[in-house]
């Protein structure tokens, strides 16, 4: 047993070096233990190892289920791409042009203040019960934070960096593209990481309410059918995808950027 754990650790540590480990294994073990304890105490609570995980496993053999995942992934990919485009360019415009900031700055903050799920009704009115309603929900649920963080990053470039650049002849657009924007990258990456989390929530809310085929819509189905084990399996999957994408891509990216920018 000890050897297996050590071997697993070694593999895990090669995949995820310390500094951005995905999950603490002790925490995972505690989680499973508490879950099983609850299942043992309450007959209505399904066992994780005996019930929920096997259900999740068999779900993956269901082609409809796999299509739902692919559908969700596609909407998230389109939505998140739009979030990056709109968020970064919007933040750059706000940070660069005082007039745009005065006119639209508080609008970006207001959009950011509205939870993703609250955009679903408006999205349905505009786009109907379609995939685009879901994508629009992701965009409005997640672009605000990227705009705000990009804008902040551009405003908060360390003065010494600006001064050094000016003494070497940087001005105007050159100064902006080669100094201000790169200096803002840690903030932008931080915003993108948060936007992933917000976007993922918005995706679920959108699918839940529009009944476009996807993971969110399946939540709705199994809840209506009172299939608790199915519901828990889905929720675990949703959490796992959120954690894994954040850990593998965003947490890692943010960490590496912070190291290079000398912020760690």
């Amino acid at each position: 047993m000890g050897i297996v754990v050590r071997l697993m650790r070694k593999v895990i540590h090669t995949l995820f070096p310390p500094g951005y480990s995905l999950l603490r294994w002790e925490a995972l073990a505690l989680f499973i233990a508490l879950w099983e304890l609850a299942a043992w105490l309450s007959p209505s609570w399904p066992s994780l190892l005996q019930k929920v995980l096997p259900v999740l496993w068999s779900d993956f053999t269901d082609p409809e289920f796999c299509q739902a995942i692919v559908g969700s992934a596609r909407r998230m990919a389109i939505g998140y791409t739009l979030v990056m485009l709109v968020g970064i360019s919007g933040g750059i415009l706000l940070g660069r042009l005082p007039i745009v900031d005065q006119l639209l700055g508080s609008l970006a903050v207001a959009i950011h203040a509205i939870p993703g799920a609250a955009w679903v009704p408006l999205s349905i009115i505009w786009f109907g019960m379609t995939e685009w309603a879901v994508i629009f929900t992701i965009l409005l649920g997640a672009a605000g934070i990227v705009i705000v963080e990009t804008d902040t990053g551009i405003r908060e470039v360390p003065p010494i960096i600006r001064r050094a650049a000016r003494t070497m002849g940087a001005r105007g657009l050159n100064d902006f593209w080669f100094v201000v924007v790169p200096a803002a990258i840690p903030k932008i990456v931080g915003g993108l990481r948060l936007a992933w989390a917000f976007g993922w929530r918005a995706l679920m809310a959108g699918e839940l309410l529009t009944s476009v085929s996807g993971l969110g819509q399946r939540l709705n189905q199994v809840a209506k059918a009172r299939q608790l084990d199915q519901l828990l399996a889905l929720m675990l999957l949703i959490a796992a995808i959120g954690i894994v994408i954040d850990g593998l891509i965003f947490k890692r990216l943010e960490y590496e950027v912070r190291v290079r920018w000398g912020l760690v």
């Binding site: 010494i160 960096i161 001064r163 070497m168 940087a170 790169p182 290079r260």
Partner: peptide, 29 residues
């Protein structure tokens, strides 16, 4: 003006550029 360059106490290098990139910066400007 680039004819009067400054070395600051804390170097003030651009962290996103390599050593070479930092030295090339003024020439690129």
């Amino acid at each position: 003006d680039a004819s009067r360059t400054v070395v600051f106490q804390d170097a003030a290098l651009f962290p996103w550029l390599s050593v070479l990139g930092n030295v090339e910066f003024g020439l690129r400007m």
